[in-house]
Nucleic acid binder design. Structure first.
Length: 630
RNA sequence: GGGCGCGUGGCGUAACUUGGAUAGCGCAUCUGGCUUCGGACCAGAGGGUUGCGGGUUCAAAUCCCGUCGCGCCCGCCA
């Protein structure tokens, strides 16, 4: 079991409140759950933990809240960790016995270490997280960075909270964009002179210009059709280009610390006949139909009016149906995604074959779907989190609705579209087609972003007096740069659109990743100077009522923060907490000498150790590696 | 025509799901702090009718209705 001292105290307070309410007002009716909901942590001048329960009770008791709060406060039995009870503005405020609570907390952190903050929220349930699914003919741009970082952080958070997480990447190697790249390969050039993803991305922009010339688009459409036959020459060439591009993109992914367990290729979904199986089931259940005449003649469609009861957003659309399979027999993206989700939730038998692609730099292997190979089990999940931009809400809604129509409500509800806001750049939208990701001097690509930020970090690191050996400049600058980028992308709410700015990306001050790293490194150095080792029991008798206890309280809420972040799929909850934690440590550090703390030295070292451990755990949730020195 | 998201000091944002005490933080501006554990820091100042108008409530940035502005989506493109 994971310990959570804050939750213990909150439960204790709730219990005391319940008893006090019962003895002060016999007629009061309020559940323990309702009481728990009224409990918050107020500003420290007011108390350590507080309840607004009197406001709730005032309705049923028909008395003013101030009077109720005063009465309840009077009836609270002090003891345990509850040291003082007071009433102010109808709130019941409690101060906690700081020494007892601090002892509990320091011990918990020291015992659990990397596990401090973990929970069993997920109960071992399997969840598949899909990201960033970049088309295999271009480099990652800053929008893909946001996607990949969100996916990584959410995976980490879910895993930390007891889910069995499968990190999956979807490679769309059958789309129009691949046919375009094939055309470029055949007609423009097949001799890359730079990193292949970058080169293909640039060529793709050229192909889009060429497409305006007569006949070109027809040629591309024709080869798209040929690609769908897995044995064609076109299919083989495309797969080869795509595989080489994915290898190049993986260099970027690894540089960012983005890893996967499995990579599913769209052509393998078709090859493994998942599509046929999925459509058979859908047809048998009558959720799709193929009209013989009219607007949708010979296409396979889902009628939107049928799903309107499950997704009211789809009612009143201009189109009355969503095409699943085109009249020429080509499946749309929704069809493949539907089949893929049938597979994810184990509704169709798993006919995928996998081969090991490589061992990633983190040591874990990545398995890709392939024509031949072994069977594995990455599916049969309870939850599927799809990290996809908000622009695709409509398709994701149709997808969900199809499962409602199948009568599988639990699956529909288990499909979670994490609709993150699109990333724009100062000039406007990022378009791979039009090439707006290409800048002057530096592109809005993941590679250039990291290179630029690292260069800026190197400037600062190389001037640091704290780092003696110049050989470590590079790796430290790299780590600082990654921390800066990751924090910058993850600190804001996922659903809000963001405008990428070089100025902000290159800043290492304020609410930033480097600030969090910095406080961690500071703590590390203090502990290192004292060769600090936790010795089994924390002596908290010299924790007082100053910034030391403020820091204790901040560390104590980490398990709750981690749970909230995981259950809401919001890494920004962690980032927000990290700033508060770092700031709290800085205040403690400024106001209370640690090594020269006299009698309080041991307790403060233990506190510094707990801070470092907690900050380290939080950093890792966002995919940021802590640094002992910077 | 329908739908979704967003709107918070000059700029970037948090809190909104679950209403609660003086709307939190960063950048920028101004002031102060290193012979003392790491100044990528800390302390302090100024700057807000939370787009606007109603409503619900003891209590609204938060919930409801309306309205305006910005972005996105509703293709046999992906």
């Amino acid at each position: 079991m994971h310990s959570n001292p804050y939750a213990q105290v909150r439960a204790e307070f709730a219990d005391l409140l319940k008893k006090a309410i019962a003895s002060a007002f016999r007629e009061a009716k309020i559940s323990e759950d309702e009481i728990l909901q009224t409990i918050t942590t107020p500003k420290s001048e007011l108390g350590d933990i507080s309840s607004s329960v009197a406001f709730r009770l005032s309705k049923t008791l028909k008395r003013n809240p101030h009077e109720i709060a005063a009465q309840v406060a009077k009836h609270i039995q002090k003891g345990g960790t509850v040291a003082e009870v007071s009433e102010l503005n109808s709130y019941i405020n409690v101060s906690i016995g700081e020494k007892k609570y601090s002892g509990m907390l320091l011990e918990s952190v020291a015992n659990e270490k990397e596990g401090y903050g973990m929970s069993d929220l997920g109960n071992g349930e399997r969840v598949i997280v899909e990201f960033p699914s970049v088309n295999p003919n271009k480099p990652w741009h800053v929008g893909h960075v946001r996607n990949a970082l969100l996916g990584t952080a959410i995976s980490n958070m879910m895993s930390f909270c007891g889910y069995d997480v499968v990190r999956s990447d979807y490679i769309d190697d059958l789309g129009l964009q691949m046919a375009e790249s094939l055309w470029g390969w055949q007609h423009l050039s097949s001799k890359p002179d730079k990193k292949l993803d970058q080169w293909l991305g640039e060529q793709y922009v050229e192909v889009n210009k060429e497409m305006k010339k007569p006949g070109v688009e027809e040629e591309i459409k024709a080869s798209l059709k040929k690609m769908e036959d897995g044995n064609s020459k076109e299919a083989k060439t495309v797969r080869e280009i795509a595989e080489r591009c994915v290898a190049a993109q993986s260099e970027t992914a690894f540089a960012y610390g983005v890893y996967h367990d499995t990579m599913v290729w769209e052509s393998d979904i078709v090859r493994a006949k998942l599509l046929d199986a999925a459509l058979d089931i859908a047809a048998a259940k009558g959720i799709i139909e193929t009209p013989k005449s009219g607007k949708y003649a010979n296409a396979t469609i889902v009628r939107l009016e049928r799903v309107a009861e499950f997704a009211k957003e789809l009612a009143g659309n201009e189109e009355e149906a969503k095409v699943i399979v085109r009249s020429n027999g080509a499946a749309t993206y929704v069809a493949k995604d539907f089949a893929f989700h049938m597979w994810k939730f184990g509704l169709i038998s798993d006919s995928f074959r996998y081969k090991k692609l490589l061992d990633q730099p983190n040591g874990a292997p990545i398995y890709v779907t392939a024509a031949e190979g072994e069977r594995m089990n990455f599916g049969r999940v309870k939850k599927a989190i799809n990290i996809i931009g908000s622009a695709q809400k409509y398709e994701q809604l149709v997808l969900k609705s199809m499962f409602y129509l199948l009568g599988r409500k639990e699956i529909a509800e288990g499909i979670i579209h994490l609709a993150y806001g699109e990333v724009k750049v100062e000039g406007g939208n990022l378009s791979t087609r039009q090439g707006t990701w290409i800048g002057s001097g530096r592109n809005f690509t993941a590679d250039d972003l990291l290179r630029e930020v690292k260069a800026a970090a190197y400037e600062i690191v190389s001037k640091s007096e704290k780092i003696k050996d110049s050989e470590s400049f590079d790796s430290i600058a790299n780590a600082v740069a990654l921390a800066a980028i990751k924090f910058e992308f993850l600190k804001m709410a996922p659903e809000s659109a963001m405008t990428f700015s070089w100025e902000r990306a290159l800043s290492f001050e304020g609410d930033s990743g480097p600030y969090c790293l910095y406080t961690y490194a500071r703590a590390a150095r203090v502990l290192e100077k004292e060769s600090y080792k936790y010795v089994g029991k924390a002596d908290a008798s010299h924790i007082g009522r100053g910034q030391d206890f403020e820091l204790i309280k901040m560390i104590a809420i980490f398990p709750d923060i981690a749970e909230k972040a995981a259950s809401e799929h919001r890494p920004s909850v962690i980032a927000d907490y990290m700033i508060k934690l770092a700031s709290s440590f800085s205040k403690f550090y400024e106001t209370m000498p640690i090594i020269k703390g006299g009698e309080a030295k041991e307790a403060r070292l233990a506190l510094t150790y707990s801070f470092k451990q907690t900050m380290g755990n939080a950093l890792r949730l966002l995919g940021i590696e802590p640094l002992e020195r910077m």
